[in-house]
Design a binder for these strands. Structure first.
Lengths: 221, 221
DNA sequence: GTTGCTACTCACCGGGGAGTGACAAAACGG
DNA sequence: CCGTTTTGTCACTCCCCGGTGAGTAGCAAC
């Protein structure tokens, strides 16, 4: 009643006979295309418009394939999360550039700034952070866990034999420090400012970095 | 074809003749009901499921009234934002309890903790903060502005004649401090932890507060 | 060939969202 | 009393979502 394919299809097919743009049959490539589509979609649009349909559209394939290859959105998100385990390591130089890190304060100052930089130019992870504080589903919880575990691990490995000053709860302080960094970058990406502090130009960011250093030095000396 | 009201309606009407539960006609009350519904919905469910239909459902009225009285969701959000201007003032004691705040450090320590507390038990504002870092629409931007303006104002008023230590960019440092607080509370509400720091029991929170104090004292002395 | 597997597409379903126009009924003004 | 305005309700359209079942196109072995 509404649509009669037997009438419509031949006409359409005749009107647009070419423009095949045939997707070559390659499961591996398609899977990658889907994963990349998902990542870039998440990075560019955020979790708000993140859905099966949108990913399929961007990947240029049918959503059915997402169900088949990843078992739906959940599986796809999990696949994204898998990369997260190595994010910090990949993003941040393992050796801190031959610097002499004599004290725990030296270390944390350096790591804070590195983390800030890394977050600043990884929109995907940034969106995930935003997601983590906005939703509390199994999906997101897994992402969150993967990320925080990797982070803790990384911190531990970088620490080496350095120890924080006596009487300072380093876990708590570091959590606050990293929370601050995440929120600053989040705010900046959403509104180009945070609590009255402009975060647009590189000059703005220098100010933020200086303040951050000061804070770190304040606690850790 | 699908539904024939002429057949169905009389039957239904006859079957359920009573149960009037008549909404009394009172525009003011209805407006308030809508606004409260919107606020509580936002506070409890977050911005994700925040929409005309949901608000109307919760308010127990027709969504048409939201369009009529508030001009749609935008207007409604703006009405919510209007309260935000006075949030800090309402939530936090004007006089800091007869305390002796001798230094800028004293002040900021106190304000930080107060802010933390205030955020912790105001789910609505917390959700708005999450919204601010997740979306960048005109709607949210207005909320954000109202809030940050009020915050800056409040800080300024509380500061009085106290001045930060020389050489410290108080604006930047405070932005980072408040960012940290916001993110900690956000994280806690979403995952009961932040960067490996548990944030569930009051003991956990004491640890966080102690660390925060240390940080503040570190920069401001 | 034709049989069978794999990669892929299509058309459709139910559901819920935003938004709108027409209507019912109470309240008000004369 | 009657007409108008205000207040509230209903029914409907359009759109997009997630999900699924049925079908198509390439490809390889027999």
């Amino acid at each position: 009643m509404l649509n009669d394919p037997m009438v419509l299809t031949p006409i359409a097919a005749a009107a647009v006979p070419v423009e095949p743009e045939k997707r070559i049959r390659d499961r591996g490539a398609t899977e990658k295309a889907i994963l990349n589509a998902a990542k870039s979609l998440l990075a560019e649009e955020g979790f708000q418009n993140f859905g099966i349909n949108a990913v399929a559209r961007r990947a240029g394939c049918d959503k059915q394939l997402i169900y088949r290859y990843y078992g739906g959105l959940n599986g796809l998100v999990e696949a994204i999360g898998a990369d997260l385990g190595t994010w910090v390591k990949d993003r941040i130089p393992e050796d801190t550039g031959g610097m002499f890190l004599l004290t725990y304060g030296d270390l944390m100052e350096r790591l804070s700034l590195l983390f800030l930089e890394a977050l600043r130019d990884d929109p995907l992870v940034l969106r995930i952070v935003a997601w983590e504080v906005s939703e509390n589903t199994e999906q997101v919880r897994r992402l969150s866990e993967a990320r925080s575990k990797a982070l803790a691990n990384w911190l531990e490995r970088m620490r080496g034999s350095l120890t924080p000053p006596k009487g300072v709860d380093a876990v708590a302080v570091n959590a606050i420090l990293f929370a601050a960094i995440q929120h600053i970058v989040l705010s900046a990406s959403a509104a180009e400012q945070c609590a009255g502090l402009a975060l647009k130009t590189s000059k703005d960011w220098e100010k933020a970095a200086t303040a951050l250093k000061r804070i770190v030095r304040g606690v850790y000396g």
